[in-house]
Amino acid sequence: MNDRITMQVARYLPEGDAELSYQEYEVPYPREWVVLDGLNYIKDRLDGSLSYRWSCRMGICGSCGMTVNGEPKLTCATFLADYAPGPVRIEPLQNFPVIRDLVVDTGDFMRKLTSVKPWLIREEEKPLSEGEHLQTPAELDQYKQYSMCINCMLCCAACPVYGLDSEFVGPAAIALAQRYNLDGRDQGSKLRLDVLSDHEGIWGCTFVGECSKVCPENVDPAGAIQRYKLTAAMDSLKSFLMPWRGS
């Protein structure tokens, strides 16, 4: 049938299945349907037992990342017709443990995100009565790109190191650390460096660059990592040459 496309959907139930299997469904694919519409069609009309996450369906909540024909994608922003005549294979994001079907465990990702202290750190809080911190548009641009991360985890799914080295904090967390480090209002970069200059921090990255390729928000985590490596290298060089300036 030329008005239907076959979706091969990964299925896995921890209670019964030893490993992941694939189930095929035939779904319509009008021009405006995204992969997520296909999954919703399955769930609503064909098989209520399929599990996956989704919410905003406009590419901003970061819930619906999955592997579509081998690539990490936001399924709400990936059109079914682009995979015609099919079949199109939908799998959970790689590099994360699968809880069920297309749902992965994000606990480790959240712990790593938290580990880089992703909040504004000030030596002294400015009282509210003194108004805002001034920040020119140019100063905002210094970190703006890294503030656009929606935590969709596609970068971590694409990163070969993240899959191999479970201690590597990953591209998203490093980009988020840079978001604060490069914000002129922040004074916490030294504290974050302790976490990030470990082997498991930035040095784990072998600069494959896949993370930036798959990022739906053009955050460029690979650029963040490179820039950070330079900062960390300079810092360690300084402490080697000028040990009296160490903390």
Binding site: W119, E125, E132, L134, Q135, T136, P137, E139, L140, D186
Partner: peptide, 22 residues
């Protein structure tokens, strides 16, 4: 206004005027 300012102090990337004000 105080609540929005508080969020600025927490790092919210509010858009700015050329002189750096909100």
């Amino acid at each position: 206004p105080r609540e929005l300012l508080r969020l600025e102090h927490s790092g919210c990337p509010w858009s700015r005027e050329p002189d750096g004000q909100i």
